[in-house]
Design a protein around this nucleic acid. Sequence first.
DNA 1: AGACCATATTAGCTTTGCCTAAATACTGGA
DNA 2: TCCAGTATTTAGGCAAAGCTAATATGGTCT
Lengths: 217, 217
Amino acid sequence: MKTEAIEDYLKNIYLSGRSGTKVSLTLLAKKLEVKPASVSGMIKRLEGMNLVKNSKKTGIILTDAGEKIALEVIRHHRLIESFLVEALGVPWNEVHEQAEKWEHMLSEKIEDRIDQMLGYPTHDPHGDPIPKRDGSVPETSDTPLNTLKAGDVGKIERINDQNPEILEYIGKLGLYPQTRFRILEVGPLNDLISLEVGDEKVQIGLEVARRIFVTVG
Amino acid sequence: MKTEAIEDYLKNIYLSGRSGTKVSLTLLAKKLEVKPASVSGMIKRLEGMNLVKNSKKTGIILTDAGEKIALEVIRHHRLIESFLVEALGVPWNEVHEQAEKWEHMLSEKIEDRIDQMLGYPTHDPHGDPIPKRDGSVPETSDTPLNTLKAGDVGKIERINDQNPEILEYIGKLGLYPQTRFRILEVGPLNDLISLEVGDEKVQIGLEVARRIFVTVG
DNA sequence: AGACCATATTAGCTTTGCCTAAATACTGGA
DNA sequence: TCCAGTATTTAGGCAAAGCTAATATGGTCT
């Protein structure tokens, strides 16, 4: 009825759709690392189950039932990530992979225990919001660091990447969620940003800055 | 190559074989809750992969390669059980089910972290030995409680059952691994045992006693 | 309009892992 | 020895999820 593959499809449709982008078969195929033909078949199946709708103009969108499942899976994923970091001290850049696998098989009981043990967290170690049981999703920032100007101060909210190497790199710079910073200088081509973090001064490039979301002020 | 189904088969062959019993298709089918015909097919496949051998006289037995995989899965299972009890305070009778699912997808890194965080435990919360990476298996008792006589003292080593209700029942009696006890009285038909545990006096029946393994002395 | 590129769909095949039903083999007792 | 009951194997099917290859659709550029 609700296989792992289905959960992965729904999760990725949700996450791809978040940014306002229209979700196409090929986009989804890329995310899922599967051929477009396979996606075509699966989407048909999901439509039959009333979990998604697909049309030329809207692209692939989730129904309420589909979104419910997607949010459940994402909740599992992010709770597990938090748990592994908190309880086990696993570095934040190593938890994604494991959560990816365990998210599909987390019992409600254990889910609740983790939630409780972590004090009902609203965000995971990367700053991504953890959906609640009722389907609501905590607020999160959509302002990428590369849109700020020299002199701006703010707080890092989330890092939008799961690649362990990149996360490790960002972590080594001290740029974790909740970290406050001040922009010292922005290169004329917007491709290099200098910031002050604590007493340190760090430089980051555009591609990294794009993945860091912040609140200003 | 090494699917979940395969791991489950190998694990169950190992565990069924432990007690000296010859492992037959039908026995395995019962354990795995599938039809004998399915087992027949799978065993054929496993033979082709050189993970098991099957013959009339020996029954189904693991090759070295097969045992290696079985022990890995069991190690995962028992580490996860221990982890959930330790880090999350999940009651010991509720961890089996979750471990059953996660055991197939535990990364080496996380496995090592758990092992280290728990202080390289030799036994899980039920007293079952946790195989080591090198394939060695810590000692464990094979003396069931129902073979003792009045006056004997000893220590509970393990509880050989995964049914949550039964474990809860046994737990409520205070009969956890490492608990010391003294046999007060054994019924004439061997079907009721009275023991002293701490300051408490508890009675257990034959079926429960059979599942409790102890060391005497 | 025609050519070309990206996207989407269809058909047909493969593997895994289970199933049922039927056929065969084995074993223990009368 | 024969027969019943148990154990095993074979054959044929099905659903999930992927694949390739071929075809359709739909712009965009010239």
